[in-house]
């Protein structure tokens, strides 16, 4: 068990965002989080990441804090720093061991994202696709065993998208558990093992991806 949610509900003030979610993530699986806009998917992912606390119920993680990767559509990048400096800061912040945050290691991580050429350029000048690849490099630096993705593909070019899909598959093969909010569920269904669908503030489907019928909660 990498992550377990037990009867989770979340209120903002008196407003209910999501209720009665029980769910478990096991290693080596991709779970697609589906549902219409405003259904509370991002809130759920933030609860899983520990960025926000559940109002009711509990969120337990079976992994160390440093093995958690969170990739949102916000890139967490400092535009005034270079790509390399962004990665170096992230590595220091997470207290990574020396061999994982050496210059070679960081450059190798950028290389893998096809960003090595731009390593010493201001990240602020990057295109959306490049910025998101840098973001991905940042997350993969942690070699996370639990990877939470909040619409990482929004606005990406085809090359960046291919890299994203490649890395998601690679992470699964490594045995990581992945929870993925996708902006195109129908397309990404084939890449998923399980689906957790939310509508009207509650879970409407939780099971194998093969049996999921997307029409039930058309976006």
């Amino acid at each position: 068990m990498l992550l377990r949610l037990t009867k989770v509900a979340k209120f903002y003030g008196n407003r209910l965002v999501i209720k009665d979610v029980s769910f478990e993530v096991s290693p080596g699986t991709v779970t697609l989080l589906a549902g219409p806009n405003g259904a509370g998917k991002s809130t759920l992912l933030k609860l899983m990441a520990g960025l926000s606390r559940p109002s009711v119920g509990s969120v337990e993680r079976g992994i160390a804090d440093e093995a958690l990767g969170y990739l949102g559509h916000q890139t967490f990048i400092y535009p005034e720093l270079t790509a390399f400096e962004n990665l170096a800061f992230w590595a220091r912040l997470h207290g990574l061991a020396q061999e994982r945050c050496s210059e070679e290691a960081l450059l190798a991580a950028l290389e893998r994202m096809e960003l090595k050429r731009f390593a010493f350029e201001r990240a602020g000048g990057f295109s959306r696709g490049m910025a998101q690849r840098l973001n991905l490099a940042r997350v993969l630096l942690l070699s996370p065993s639990l990877l939470l993705l909040d619409e990482p593909g929004t606005g990406l070019d085809t090359r960046s998208m291919a890299i994203l899909h490649r890395e998601i598959a690679a992470a699964r093969d490594r045995g990581a558990g992945i929870v993925w909010i996708s902006h195109s569920v129908a397309e990404d269904l084939a890449r998923a093992d399980r689906v957790l669908a939310i509508a009207d503030k509650r879970v409407v489907y939780s099971g194998p991806a093969a049996d999921y019928v997307p029409e039930a909660v058309a976006c």
Partner: peptide, 13 residues
Amino acid sequence: ANGARFGLLLAPV
């Protein structure tokens, strides 16, 4: 700016 706050909060410290 780019939600960097969440990045800081995710750090295991």
